[in-house]
Amino acid sequence: MRLALHPSLTALTSPHAVVSLWAAHQEDGAVPAVNPSVPENAWVLRSDRSVRVLSMSLGDCRFVGALQTGATLGAATAMAADPGDGTDAGFDLTRCLAVLLREQVVTGITIATRT
């Protein structure tokens, strides 16, 4: 099975606090203190006429990246859950799929048939 995702969805992994810095500058008023050297990951997507930045795990970003390159659901899950570098042993497929569905970025599902 393969999932097609909306083309506006981008997975962003960064060694910097990109989500916190983005959020800090979206409100008027005092900017909260942010440690820019804290690694953060995000999904960036367009929702109507606005840009949404969702704080996500490294596994979530790996999962989306794998799906966007044509990986099957099983292969993308395996790539996302692989803690090879010890950074994301807790990938949660159910939570990740729930966010994809809530944000309405799944645009299609293809189920391969055996011939």
Results as ranks from 00 to 15, higher is better:
16 H>A: 14
80 A>T: 01
74 G>R: 12
89 A>P: 09
108 G>K: 06
89 A>V: 04
55 S>F: 04
15 P>G: 14
59 G>E: 06
7 P>E: 15
62 R>M: 08
74 G>D: 15
6 H>Q: 09
110 T>G: 03
62 R>A: 13
63 F>K: 00
11 A>T: 08
3 L>S: 01
50 S>I: 05
30 A>G: 07
81 A>I: 04
5 L>I: 15
115 T>K: 03
13 T>V: 15
2 R>W: 03
44 V>G: 02
58 L>F: 09
92 D>N: 15
112 A>P: 10
6 H>S: 12
107 T>L: 03
28 D>Y: 00
62 R>T: 04
51 V>Y: 06
29 G>H: 10
65 G>I: 05
66 A>V: 04
37 S>P: 01
9 L>S: 00
51 V>M: 10
84 G>P: 03
17 A>E: 08
78 A>I: 09
4 A>Y: 01
52 R>H: 11
23 A>K: 10
3 L>W: 01
54 L>I: 15
88 D>A: 14
83 P>E: 15
30 A>V: 12
33 A>M: 02
111 I>F: 06
31 V>L: 07
59 G>Y: 03
65 G>F: 08
41 N>H: 15
17 A>I: 12
49 R>T: 07
93 L>D: 05
70 G>Q: 10
114 R>C: 07
9 L>R: 04
49 R>H: 05
71 A>W: 04
71 A>S: 15
54 L>C: 05
4 A>M: 06
56 M>P: 00
21 L>V: 15
112 A>I: 09
47 S>I: 07
73 L>Q: 10
107 T>P: 00
50 S>V: 14
28 D>E: 13
47 S>T: 09
1 M>Y: 05
35 N>G: 05
60 D>R: 03
85 D>L: 14
76 A>S: 06
98 A>P: 00
48 D>Q: 14
86 G>E: 09
96 C>K: 10
18 V>P: 00
63 F>T: 01
107 T>Q: 08
103 E>K: 09
89 A>F: 03
90 G>R: 14
25 H>Y: 07
44 V>F: 03
43 W>P: 01
84 G>K: 09
79 M>Q: 12
34 V>S: 12
113 T>Y: 02
73 L>E: 11
98 A>R: 11
112 A>K: 12
108 G>S: 12
67 L>S: 06
76 A>N: 02
10 T>R: 10
93 L>H: 10
96 C>A: 15
57 S>H: 04
103 E>T: 04
62 R>I: 12
18 V>A: 04
78 A>D: 06
31 V>G: 01
94 T>R: 12
99 V>C: 08
56 M>T: 14
68 Q>C: 01
8 S>D: 14
89 A>C: 00
101 L>R: 11
100 L>R: 00
31 V>K: 13
11 A>Q: 05
1 M>L: 10
56 M>N: 02
81 A>Y: 06
42 A>I: 07
89 A>Q: 07
61 C>P: 02
25 H>N: 12
32 P>F: 13
103 E>I: 01
76 A>V: 08
55 S>W: 07
6 H>N: 11
94 T>D: 14
56 M>K: 12
70 G>K: 13
38 V>R: 13
13 T>W: 02
85 D>P: 06
49 R>W: 00
56 M>A: 15
44 V>Y: 01
10 T>C: 10
71 A>T: 03
111 I>D: 03
113 T>A: 07
40 E>M: 11
